[in-house]
Nucleic acid binder design. Sequence first.
RNA 1: GCAGGAGUGGCGGAAUGGCAGACGCAUCAGACUCAAAAUCUGACGUAGGUGACUAUGUGUGGGUUCAAGUCCCAUCUCCUGCACCA
Length: 804
Amino acid sequence: MAAPFNHRAVEEKWRKRWEEHPVNVNDGKKPKYYCLDMFPYPSGNGLHVGHWRGYVISDVWSRYKLMQGHYIIHPMGWDAFGLPAENYAIKMGVHPAKSTAANVANIKKQINDIAALYDWDMEVNTTDPKFYKWTQWIFVKMFKEGLAYEKEFPINWCPSCKTGLANEEVVNGCCERCGATVTKKNLRQWMLKITAYAERLLNDLDKLDWPEKVKKMQSDWIGKSYGAEVEFPVDGREEKITVYTTRPDTLYGATFMVLAPEHALAASLATEDTKEAVDKYILDASMKSNVDRLQDKEKTGVFTGSYAVNPLNGAKIPIWLSDYVLADYGTGAIMCVPAHDDRDFEFATKFNIPIIQVIAKDGKEIENMTEAYTEASGIMINSGEWNGMESAVLKKEAPMMIEKRGLGRKTVNYKLRDWVFSRQRYWGEPIPIIHCPHCGNVPVPEDQLPLRLPEVESYQPTGTGESPLAAIDEWVNTTCPVCGAPAKRETNTMPQWAGSSWYFLRYVDNHNDKELVSREKADKYLPVDMYIGGVEHAVLHLLYSRFYTKFLCDIGVVDFDEPFTKLFNQGMITGENGVKMSKSMGNVVSPDDLIRDYGCDALRMYELFVGPPELDAEWDDRGIEGVARFLKRFWNLVLDNKDRDGKETKESVKLRHKMVHDITTRLESFSLNTVISGFMEYNNKMIDLAKQQGGMDRETLETAMTLLAPFAPHIAEELWEQMGHTDSVFAHGWPKADAESMKEEEKEIAVQINGKTRGVVNLPVECSKEEAIAAGKAAVADRLTGNIVKEIYVPGRIINLVVK
RNA sequence: GCAGGAGUGGCGGAAUGGCAGACGCAUCAGACUCAAAAUCUGACGUAGGUGACUAUGUGUGGGUUCAAGUCCCAUCUCCUGCACCA
């Protein structure tokens, strides 16, 4: 009997060995493969089994690529600036720099328990001045290119975090971080002109090997629409109001116009009679939070007393104000066609505004309209010279026709807004701008970067709309780098996303203090081949990173404009009943006990075995027994047979090649849970065959441990060594399956009568239909009654006799 | 409301249109043991039968096909994302 498997001894031994003799080395000849994890923010809670999953997936993939002959770039770092780190520090009453450093140390230790291939020489930390020097440098470059600009307007404000937020950080009107209801606050803000890249961000999605879901979320977020801007003169006044519409074909059906309460002309359109009501409506709207505005099911509005003139037919239509029109989309004003738009219909019905149908539904005008007809299909009616045209055709042509007649222009619109980039908090990169009374906004000269975050006693958010940095006079007061006059520093900081938008570029050249990344290394090691992480960043981090990469490509820092060639989103590990693991729910499962009891290899495999990697999975500790038993059985199989000199047989060769084939195809398709079950299946088969034959050949056993190596590296290495090898199992290439050797000569085939299985026959694989049918008939002869009207034989699959 | 995903034993989950439930957990029985643990062997969808068996079964209702968990139509439920974007 072989010595029993002692996971602790084996793991300890190999950890040490790998430290002395790394398995992933860059010889300068092997092709690179960059496999990246979304880097964590170092929270105080440490890792739970859910965090492990993504790291295990990426490590398995990395080791597989390693065995295929690549040099693996598999780095890890810390997204340590930002709200979570700062809020944690405030709660614990320590300085964020201190708590962050402690958390990094703790999590790093935990991550090391995974036994992943991480190359700690590449480590980055977004709060390291050597790192954020370049975060600031990118901002300065963007400023110089006109992509970073200042603007005062009502932004999303989280009253709990006491800071402004980007649109992407507002979820259902609440703060993405803390869940508090987001309000509006008029603030001077730094903005990044991500909208300048809207078209490229949209189009280049086609290039990416990403989950369709994520691509769709991004394209919806960018939200491109085609339409026209149409100018409506205001009756009796000089001004014109421009509206944006995607349905210019329905222009004849416009019976009123609605302006957002924030529209520049809103107040001035009021007449003496309506002034009071209009002013009140505008004021009320300004007090409403996003949530209130969203939750108001019933439409509200107020008539201004003024009229607009439909430029096509001269019809006078009333101008209303309503908060269902958004001020910052399109022109903040819309023409309303109640017959063909749900919202306009609801509004018109409520306020008794006429409804004019301009597209015939099923060739007819609808009597007693009860809902809007929103399809752009049907013949135009009540539309002057457009009568008789097909709506779908007109929808496309109308913008040009309107433009030709000088009534407006063809245009496109995006939902994407510019990125609110400043935060009124302490724990972030200071924005490297100096406000000079003479020169305006002047960037901190590049040779003076990094602009260090000052050490302070008090870093609590002020809530006044100013960052805590504003209170540090000696830091704020400086001189203008251009004219030398007294000037003030910008006191806002950057959002957490700033560092994470480009960190993946830095890993490969993290000590370079001359450049963000050398062009040579960028060309050699970038971009990321495989990016693995949760889906929660679909429109945040992943969109921002694409934007940054495109910008850095445009200014020549890198030569590619998409950062992540392939993306994989792993599902979340939850507690019982799909409840998210959290401290407050008390359902957090720590990997520490499991590692102690079952070992790292077992936990790695169980993380994958719990379910398809892309789906959420409920954690159940008990299941780990299964993989632990498998590892023990495999250990015993190998050690019991290694000295028995088992001969290769036809059966064992076939088994070996089928095993390689199955494991590899499942791995390639990222079906990692079935890779693990595959190992168990083949292990069972090998055990049976070894029993039958009185041994198992060496080649088959070694192939099995080679396949197992990316999943359970310690045990694979140990067994590899026990087989007498002095090199690492990872130095061994990934085995290849030979189709010829896998071929079955005979196959068991079900014989059906009318689609129901009535027997089985063993058939040679190469066998004629006649022979097969004859054998099939013989196998079910006693059940065969009536006339056979059809005989189906699908080689290798089935025989079906259709009987009447 | 719109878009995407999912619905299969007690549980997690497998199934290029071809014998549904692989693999594992839990459970039950047996072996080993003074005993327990570990390990090994076997059973394990439901209903009926002593039985080799028979019928039935992948959310629900239809359809296509020699053959449907898988394809098509309709419908219900759950999850995820977006949501007054004109």
